[in-house]
Nucleic acid binder design. Structure first.
Lengths: 179, 179, 179, 179
DNA sequence: AATGAATGAGGGTTCATTCAT
DNA sequence: GATGAATGAACCCTCATTCAT
């Protein structure tokens, strides 16, 4: 429901109906709508973290793993309600703490991930760790806002391939400079 | 107010208070809250279009103009409420039409803009027009979601410089390959 | 407008628009919406009174004049907004006074009218004046509520003829007892 | 409240106050003011139908039953808000259907009722079924608009008696023509 | 532990009315 | 004398939340 209408417009009544319980039950379990949202966001954050962990730890080649992170189809299908996380995170200290903790963990892991890429020649060694991570996040957020592009993958296959090239080589970089 | 709390949470009462008028006056002028939002979105779209036009038509070097578009500080300071435009655009046929028209116009202009860049050697000629435009938009949207980065530019100057490099040369591209 | 939507739903704004003036002008002339309604009701009452006067004073045969009063087509076409007169009359002493005055006048005239009918054998002499007048008014009000019957007169001609017979002879009275 | 001020002026707030609940409760039960009105109208229609059924099926003499229908004191005391039924019926298809169904049922029953009256010599056999039913309805509606007449029955007893005579024998019909 | 019923606070909207110009 | 612009009071309605059962 949060995905469909946003968490602000999802009424406790509707949520309860979908869950097959009464609104009161939600309050017995979560204390308030805010509490429910907090729990959902928590699980969302933990799931996402775990998923990226698994990708980075996986056996696939580096570029493939990188692509899985940048073009995160699952996350796209989730129609990620940025409003949700942002609204909650900005007002709830508990979530903020968790977010900071996970972000720290993720950064650390990402650093070793890109260290690997650097070693393999896939990442320019002049780039600072911070810049690379930020760039990745910018790409991910921007792509999420273009979720429609990936609705019909076969139709946009060529476009997606070019975008992959773009984030690797930029607007200007030479393509033949493969490692 | 739309920037601060989002247009959904901005009550007509609060809007009127800020404007120094009574809520009824808002209705006399805009008919409904939706009407007000529609007008705001319209002006926003027209202003943005005009601004980018001016940048592209300007006298600065190509790369500088490109940077002005990618790191659009004004737009960032506007704390662009994506929710707003999206919500309105998706439900209002009049806005949809305007959006489509402006998008068509913008695309056409952008194409000649990048043609210029290509001639000057700033854009890889193998990239399709569509890919370039999409990439730009992804970057812009992603950067907007990172508006905080540009709150204290002097502090993040180095980071911003690196990001500029990233969108031009990608993660991998050689930096010495200047035209 | 009062006829179309009722005077309660007719807004001063709409009334002014139809009149081609601004709402303020209405207030300059009538002081308030109530004042406007009062004036309209006054004119309505005076017009109606005058019209019935003219009918009763006319040259037609008695029964024909009676029929004109009972099946008052003009009044029907006016889609008489009973709500209006009643609401105003019940709250405005000035209108009440006028109504009482006109009613007194009308009653007096009606009495002589039915005296005429009685002399001609068209009205049972046993009936009290009050009963006859009330009966007439009941019929008129009831017929007004059945305005649709007279929308297509040719279609309901036979029905109307029978109703005429009914108010003259009742459910039971013998038809052959013509004078 | 609908009787007193009409359903349009009866605010949900006032209705709730009279019911000893909060306005929100009204919405939980009826969905909207329109929903409440719809339910009231439905019950009103069903009650009225049932009542007339009971009268027609009763053991009293024909004339007495007829009088009960024409001078329906309960209905009068209800100060029947014609605006209500009409407004709702004209806009709500569900009510329209119910109204049509009940009207059909009622007409059928009324026809046999008057057949009975005809057999007993109380109704002129020359009158068409439609005319009789319409006449009855005209009388009822007209009398409802004269509800005040029956506020103090003892005071107007003589008048009511004469009116009874009038709808049976008309203005002209001979009184001695009892069956 | 679950719920049905109830509610207070607040949101969007309408409209008779005023007043400086 | 006419008006455009503004408004306060009120109306219908929603929703997060509570509480006795």
């Amino acid at each position: 429901l949060f995905k469909t209408v946003g968490f602000r417009r999802a009424t406790v009544h509707d949520i309860a109906e979908r869950a097959g319980v009464s609104p009161a039950t939600i309050y017995n379990h979560f204390g308030s709508k805010e509490g429910l949202v907090r729990d959902v966001v928590k699980r969302l954050m933990l799931d996402t973290t775990e998923k990226y962990w698994a990708i980075m730890d996986g056996d696939r080649p580096f570029l493939e793993r990188l692509e899985l992170i940048v073009f995160d189809k699952e996350e796209l299908s989730r129609q990620y309600d940025g409003e949700l996380v942002q609204a909650v995170a900005s007002s709830d200290p508990e979530i903020q703490q968790l977010a900071e903790y996970l972000y720290g963990q993720a950064t650390e892991r990402m650093v070793t991930f890109f260290e690997e890429g650097r070693t393999l020649g896939y990442v320019n060694p002049e780039l600072s760790r911070e810049a690379v991570l930020t760039y990745l996040d910018i790409l991910r957020k921007g792509i999420l806002a273009h979720a429609d592009l990936f609705a019909e993958p076969e139709k946009n296959a060529q476009l997606v391939r070019e975008l992959s090239s773009l984030y690797l080589y930029g607007l200007l970089g030479k393509r033949d400079a493969s490692p």
